[in-house]
Design a protein around this nucleic acid. Structure first.
Length: 347
DNA sequence: AACGGAACCAACCGCTGTTCA
DNA sequence: GTGAACAGCGGTTGGTTCCGT
C-alpha cells in the first residue's frame, strides 16, 4: 500500500502524557465519544497524533480499565488462552475484563514467559523443552539400583541411539516419576516396544533428511507424523501446583497420578503403528496451513512445529469460532503430559 | 551513598486488514 | 477496480524504578 505514516506531521508531541493532556482527552471523549481518531487531536486541542490519542485512551484512560497486579486466576487464564491463541493479545484481552492487550503482553513478557522458561516449558509452544532433557534421566535409576527391568529398558533403547531427539522423548516418558517407587510403571514399559516400532518403521519407510530429526517428524503438525496431545502441556496447572507446593519455580512438585495420559498414549500408539498419527480434530484439516506457527512469531529456539493440539486446532480453523475452540480446548487440558514431565533435574 | 544491572511498563513503530471515495 | 485513509494489532524501544553490591 505504501501508506504514509499517521504521525508524519512535525511538531506533534511524543513521549509520556501529561495530566493536562489526559484531562483534555478524557473530557473530549466523554463529551463527543471516540469518533474519528484522526480529527480528535485537533478538536480536543492536543498536539498529538490520533494514533497516540487512541493508544493512550485504550491502554490507560478508559474508565473500565482494571489496574494493579494480575491475580492468579487471571494469570492462569492468560496461560491457557495463550496456549490456544498464541500472541493474539487483543483476543486474550477480550476475555479478561478490564485488562488491555498491551498490559497482558507486557505481563507475559516480563513475568509469565520467564517463569515458564524456568519451569522448562517453552513459552511459545507450551511444551516441555526437549533441549533440557537427556539420557541421564534414564540412566539415573539404573545407576543406583540397576534391576533387571532397568537393564531391559536400556537394552531396548539401544536402537534409538541414532535418533537423539526421539531418545530424549523416550527418556522423558520413561523417566516420569512413579507413584511409590522408582520402578517404571507397566504402562511405561509398554511404551518401549512402541518407541522401537516407531523408530524401526521410520527407518524402513524413509530415512530422515539431515535437517529433520526424528523428533521433528513427530512434532511437525503438517507432516504425516503427528502426535496430538502427546506433549500437550498445561503450564497453568503446573503453575497452580507450584503455588501449592513450592514458591521456588525451579522446584517442581511431585506428581501422584500419571496414569491418566497413558491409556490415550498407548491407544494412539496401537492405532498408529505406521506413525500416521492424526486426531479427530486436526485430521479433517491437516494441511500445511495447519502450522501452528503461522500467525505467531516463533523464535528459532523453538521446536519446528507446535505440538499443542489446541493451538493447532485454533489456527487450522482460522480462529473463526474462538469461543468454541476454547471450550474444546478446556476439555483437552485434562490431558496433562506436563504433569509427568519432571524437568527440574535439568534446570 | 553511589553505582550498575535488572525489571517494569508506557509509548512508539511498522505492518496488516478494512473501509470508502 | 484502485488506492488512500483509517483502525487495530503485535513487536520493540526507551525511560523510570527497583534492587543488589
Amino acid at each position: 500500500m505504501g501508506r504514509a505514516p499517521c504521525c508524519d506531521r512535525t511538531g506533534l508531541k511524543k513521549g509520556p502524557w501529561t495530566q493536562e493532556e489526559d484531562e483534555k482527552l478524557v473530557a473530549y471523549i466523554k463529551k463527543h465519544g471516540q469518533g474519528n481518531w484522526r480529527t480528535l487531536p485537533k478538536n480536543a486541542d492536543l498536539e498529538r497524533c490520533g494514533k497516540s490519542c487512541r493508544l493512550r485512551w485504550t491502554n490507560y484512560l478508559r474508565p473500565d480499565i482494571k489496574r494493579g497486579r494480575f491475580s492468579f486466576e487471571e494469570e492462569e487464564t492468560i496461560i491457557q488462552l495463550h496456549s490456544i491463541l498464541g500472541n493474539k493479545w487483543s483476543a486474550i484481552a477480550a476475555r479478561l475484563p478490564g485488562r488491555t492487550d498491551n498490559e497482558i503482553k507486557n505481563y507475559w513478557n516480563t513475568h509469565i514467559r520467564k517463569r515458564l522458561l524456568r519451569m522448562g516449558i517453552d513459552p511459545v509452544t507450551h511444551a516441555p523443552r526437549l533441549d533440557l532433557l537427556d539420557l541421564s534421566s534414564l540412566l539415573k535409576p539404573a545407576a543406583y539400583y540397576p534391576t533387571q527391568a532397568d537393564l531391559d529398558t536400556l537394552r531396548a533403547l539401544e536402537p534409538l541411539a541414532n535418533y537423539p531427539d526421539l531418545l530424549r522423548l523416550a527418556s522423558t516418558l520413561l523417566s516420569a516419576p512413579t507413584t511409590t517407587s522408582s520402578q517404571p510403571t507397566t504402562e511405561q514399559h509398554m511404551l518401549l516396544p512402541w518407541l522401537i516400532q516407531a523408530q524401526m518403521a521410520q527407518q524402513v519407510s524413509q530415512a530422515p533428511p539431515q535437517h529433520a530429526t526424528a523428533a521433528d517428524m513427530f512434532l511437525q503438525p503438517s507432516s504425516a507424523c503427528q502426535m496430538p496431545g502427546l506433549v500437550h502441556a498445561n503450564p497453568a496447572q503446573q503453575l497452580h501446583q507450584d503455588h501449592m507446593v513450592a514458591s521456588d519455580y525451579g522446584q517442581l512438585p511431585g506428581y501422584d497420578n500419571q496414569l491418566d495420559y497413558v491409556p490415550g498414549l498407548m491407544q494412539m500408539a496401537s492405532d498408529t503403528s505406521n506413525l500416521q498419527w492424526s486426531s479427530p480434530v486436526t485430521s479433517s484439516n491437516n494441511n500445511n496451513n495447519c502450522n501452528v506457527g503461522s500467525g505467531v512469531s516463533t523464535p528459532s529456539s523453538s521446536p519446528a512445529g507446535r505440538v499443542n493440539l489446541a493451538s493447532t486446532t485454533a489456527f487450522c480453523a482460522n480462529a473463526s469460532n474462538i469461543d468454541a475452540l476454547i471450550a474444546d480446548a478446556d476439555g483437552l487440558f485434562d490431558m496433562h503430559l506436563s504433569d509427568l514431565l519432571d524437568v527440574s533435574d535439568y534446570m
